[in-house]
Design a protein around this nucleic acid. Sequence first.
DNA 1: TGAAATAATGTAAGCGCTTACATTTACGGC
DNA 2: GCCGTAAATGTAAGCGCTTACATTATTTCA
Lengths: 363, 363
Amino acid sequence: MPEEKLRRQQSGRANASPTLEDVAQRAGVSTATVSRCLNAPERVSEATRKQVLEAVNLLGYAPNFGARALAAKRTDTFGAIIPTMENAIFARGLQAFQEELEQNGITLLVSSSSYSPQLEEKQIRALIARGADALLLIGHDRTPQSYALLESKGIPHVIAWSIDHSIPRTSIGFDNRKAMRMLAEEILKLGHRELAVISAPQDGNDRARERCQGVIDALIQYDLNPADLPIIETPYSISNGADAFQTLFQSRNRPTAVLCGNDVLAAGALSRARELGLRVPEDISITGFDDIEIAQIVSPGLTTVHVPHRKMGMHAARLLVAMRNGEYGETPAESLELPATITWRDSLGPVALRETKDLPQDR
Amino acid sequence: MPEEKLRRQQSGRANASPTLEDVAQRAGVSTATVSRCLNAPERVSEATRKQVLEAVNLLGYAPNFGARALAAKRTDTFGAIIPTMENAIFARGLQAFQEELEQNGITLLVSSSSYSPQLEEKQIRALIARGADALLLIGHDRTPQSYALLESKGIPHVIAWSIDHSIPRTSIGFDNRKAMRMLAEEILKLGHRELAVISAPQDGNDRARERCQGVIDALIQYDLNPADLPIIETPYSISNGADAFQTLFQSRNRPTAVLCGNDVLAAGALSRARELGLRVPEDISITGFDDIEIAQIVSPGLTTVHVPHRKMGMHAARLLVAMRNGEYGETPAESLELPATITWRDSLGPVALRETKDLPQDR
DNA sequence: TGAAATAATGTAAGCGCTTACATTTACGGC
DNA sequence: GCCGTAAATGTAAGCGCTTACATTATTTCA
């Protein structure tokens, strides 16, 4: 036994964590036996196991994760990098993801990138360094280095909240563009012709981009000019949604329907609309995207695109576990598209036959 | 050089991560130099440093965290265990916490305990095993084993979102009881005498318990019988808040004011009230707690207790960093109490002079 | 110019664990 | 009782990194 270690044990520093060796000594067995006892109990006799467990409890032993990972070359840890924890967009999906992982004895490490590809790259690096066996990522926009990193380390990963069949990369989610187009068509069907959108910054956010593209698709289908579509980009937050709404409302071409890139923005828009004395949907229609909890508590309830959060999370977890276990060999697993549907509430109505001057003016 | 390693390098498995040694070899220096280059650049000459960095980039080297932690005995990683990520209660505080840590080059690991002390104990163990240098915990209720663990490993930790001067343990937060009492007094001052509360389950949640106690305190001050106070316990969620509200509303002693244990519950109560055809606050008053974003977007806006989320997070981080750096020696750092205030919006009003039969009945 | 001081680098011993392989023990069957 | 087999346990070699200590190169100054 090394001297330093010996000294430590003699002086009995209570503070330092006991090691496998301490346990072994206490139980009167070798470290190998203790290790087996913890990782493959069936390979150890009843009697010894009892002894070892006793020693473990007595000493309050907890294995050192780093050492274990180092030796075993696998951590049973997955990582997830989401753009933000601030609002609930990803919370439910992540929860499902984590529950499914837990079933498989896997721990989840979460970090958030604040919608910045650079930051995300850093996080990927950090998670890999920490030994993440596999990664959950949101959307397709990231630095080439990020992909290179993933590739070169051979880290299984799936991309959620977005899907792109043209890319040979397993993703699991829904078609943002199609979903938003569907909603936009409903709006057009209700007679609206003056649309506007409040979106998250499109740069580095393929979901936002796709959603905008979706309304453009619908516009084109109705022979309207996409160039006329006002799009305000602003980070997801209630107050930003409110401000953007006001800008739109005060502009020359006041829209009759405002499509928001997500429910948080829409909630902001809605409350500002109310503050401005507007009735929704009689005076103006507002829609969201995501169908998170706040969509149903604002009033009027938000008509929005329902995203299969939990399903995405669960499937992503299963896929990732399978990939980690090598069930797909070298070929990437197939992507999985889940349907997004419209949840009808009350914030969207038919366009009003009205004189613009009936509306409250703000000058 | 060990054989296995040699073989690997010869066969050139591109997949495995390059190690310090690979970099060293490539740069033609020793591993020690590479290590220093990364951890204490000033101790290496300009020229070598350049060479090494080049090799690092070329190889896409990223240090193995576990190995580093094992050798250096510190991880620059803090952990935080919050009860839930599902709603936004802890999001803002956590964000501030994390921002402050980042300033100090510390990475944050987050996990959630679902309000279960048992689960929390597991998480503490996991975080410690992962080498967390320090921990942020919420509230005082946890298993004795959890505390024992923290104690025996000598892990610096602070408790946030709650404060208890009677316990020799550093906490940083506000006085839940006092805050709720303050709110309840305002309600009583407005003439309400029939109060009710919708709380989170009090077991294992000292914040919930303290808040309930706070309204009891106020009741006593007004010579009212606390035994008459209906308290419904239900997990934080909008729909639970709604259901609880309905139960209360349908009970014999219909309250004139409902105090909710947090804003999420209150938002649910509010929306159900509206569904039941009640006007808030004319027919019934509803209050929240936390002052998270949804408090201002529901209508009417929620009168609620404003909790200094960001301040708590930031101070907790600073304190923890100081503790980790040994600035407090053996004595625990002092607790810090921050003030909680009332944010007045529109969901609380004076008690109505009214006949009960004027209200919509639900039978 | 040379010795002492200083800066730069190298050597190698661990950190706490897992696991291939070696060794010991237990158990039947004849 | 002896031997073969299987089960239980032990031995020890790393995993990739940091760092105390040793060594070598460079600088400084009398």
